[in-house]
Nucleic acid binder design. Structure first.
Lengths: 345, 345
DNA sequence: CTGTTAGCGCGTTCAA
DNA sequence: TTGAACGCGCTAACAG
């Protein structure tokens, strides 16, 4: 069993006061040597830092946060969607890297599907007095938006940026533009019957925008399919397979399926294998998201890349610039995206 | 531009003292109503909680943490590997869920490949005075292990549990057992020439254990391949394809490839498609990890499932039990695993 | 069951 | 450039 007696959780670590004593200065000088090195003479600073190094001093961030002014606190809170997928993980990684480079820490909380739990999550985050909040889940509950709109804390949303009024600031892509671009690309490649498979769009503005982008591109290029070639399926590869089955039954001339996520696209590709359909000879498939696997499939998947890692970084950078009080800061930061053309379409 | 003037980060939120005043009690009573409800009479409690609810009070966790005894602090620190993959994301999700159910928050930091940065990351975590640490990256640096072994804080490692002396506590599987089980399974299915593809094992005890498990199972069942059927490749699907190419050239009678990760296995499957090899007729493939996609590929992948979500939860539960001072707590918690037999092998 | 006192370890503010 | 006093908001410890 765990020999907890050997461990000594109550032993206090060495404090700033003690460092000060050993360096022969006042605690305040140690604090300054760490926070505003310029305000301390070079040799005092050197002496203090030497002691800190030697003793392995770790500053108590809790005490620090308690006495600091809000914008100097070195913690950012983040809420991520209740289902972590690899795309979100990349974003978190970008945020994490940017945070740590700047000496910030990331307090992570998972959002929830229901508004009440979501508000609870935001309150939990706020309890830790973060310098700012980065939200990656769509904030649905009115009271949550209200809470944040009160302006106690800076907020960056990573979200759809078209037709979305940010609570404070927003970083993201226009999903309309992305889907429009991909659809136009497929039209340009000569496909005549372009299907669109998505997971349920209700309550998801990103998917709504993608579908509208798809439709608009068709209209703008004179493609009209009586009855439509759209379908909603569950967010699994099996859903993608089902979409292919259903749409190609609805229209035997379907020659390409544009999927609103790579997961669906992968399922559609597998379904083609099962049927012995050549890709892209008999059927072409386009995805969305550029998961790692998209490049490894056979055939390799044509898809749309959103720079998720960079988006995470950018969100943190935006926050830090705000905290530094930078003027003329844009509220909305659009990110670039890219169509990745491979073999599948 | 961001209208930061409208936002008011300095407006202090309502405090416990103020709640106390409005409820007609002492601040301490409010504190108790929140932390130890039993120590307050039912109607005082009701009155206090009503005011809290009405005013939307959010307790300042920073102040709370500063004055609480360490084991009562409601934050756990966690270090995750520098590359977040979906498996890790699942673990984080399990940890996150377990934390939030218990009213804890998760402070997330990414580890690093070099020991110095790793130690720095741990120090950063410790600075926030977490009640405990959950480490998902293998802690390599001696000084980091030293820092933690000093016992200031409870530690749960999510790691290999065979031949690994935990810093404090550990949760995980025996990678030896998992690979042994899969190899034996393949032998039982009648395969004669079993290849083993892994990413470089050097410095990775989990992979080392898997390879040893594979070898031991062969030996125990009288399988001997002069020259061996092992190969190390990069951790990409392309690596898996390369492994298949190389090993089947080395031994044309190779009839199954056991890959140390699903990513490799997926690459190997795609390579078979390219060659027109039937799976599992001409070649069988087994993976490790049971990624989401394993069940969606064609053919569906036979693989080994490690309950990552549960592992994350279990790690947090272990920590909380320790913090509650539970006696007779085992130091090492082995997790179950499962061979998932599908079509590919 | 409730209240009072003291102090957690820093950073802010002001004085030297 | 450095230091001293004070307080952040809460909880431990003790008293009533």
């Amino acid at each position: 069993m765990a020999d907890s007696s050997r461990r000594n959780p109550s032993k206090p670590r060495i404090s700033m006061k003690e460092i000060a004593r050993r360096a022969g200065v006042a605690p305040m000088t140690v604090s300054r040597a760490l926070a505003d090195p310029d305000k301390v003479s070079p040799d005092t600073r050197a002496r203090v830092l030497a002691v800190i190094e030697r003793e392995g001093f770790i500053r108590n961030q809790i005490a620090s946060a308690m006495s600091s002014t809000p914008s100097r606190r070195r913690m950012l809170g983040t809420m991520v969607p209740p289902l972590i997928n690899s795309g979100i993980a990349e974003q978190v990684q970008g945020m994490s890297d940017a945070c740590h480079e700047a000496g910030y820490q990331l307090l992570l909380i998972q959002g929830a599907f229901d508004p009440e739990a979501e508000e609870k999550a935001i309150r939990a985050l706020l309890g830790w007095q973060p310098a700012g909040l980065i939200l990656q889940a769509f904030v649905t509950s009115d009271s949550a938006r209200h809470l944040l709109a009160a302006g106690e804390v800076a907020v960056v949303e990573i979200s759809e940026i078209r037709g979305h009024e940010p609570i404070d600031m927003a970083v993201g892509v226009s999903n309309f533009d992305t889907a429009y671009a991909m659809t136009r690309h497929l039209i340009g490649k000569g496909y005549r019957r372009i299907g669109f498979a998505s997971t349920p769009v209700h309550g998801n503005d990103r998917l709504q925008q993608r579908r509208i982008g798809y439709r608009q591109a068709l209209v703008d290029h004179g493609h009209v399919y009586p009855g439509g070639l759209e379908i909603e399926v569950p967010i699994t590869a099996q859903g993608g397979a089902a979409a292919l089955v259903a749409l190609s039954a609805r229209d035997p001339e379907l020659d390409v399926l544009f999927c609103s996520s790579d997961t669906l696209a992968i399922g559609a590709v597998q379904e083609c294998h099962r049927r012995g359909w050549k890709i892209p000879g008999r059927m072409a498939i386009a995805g969305y998201g550029d998961m790692d696997l998209a490049a490894e499939l056979y055939p390799r998947l044509t898809t749309l890349r959103i720079p998720r890692y960079q988006m995470g970084r950018r969100a943190v950078e935006q926050m830090l610039r705000r905290l530094k009080g930078e003027p003329e800061l844009p509220r909305i930061v659009p990110m670039e995206f890219e169509i990745v053309e491979r073999e599948s379409a």
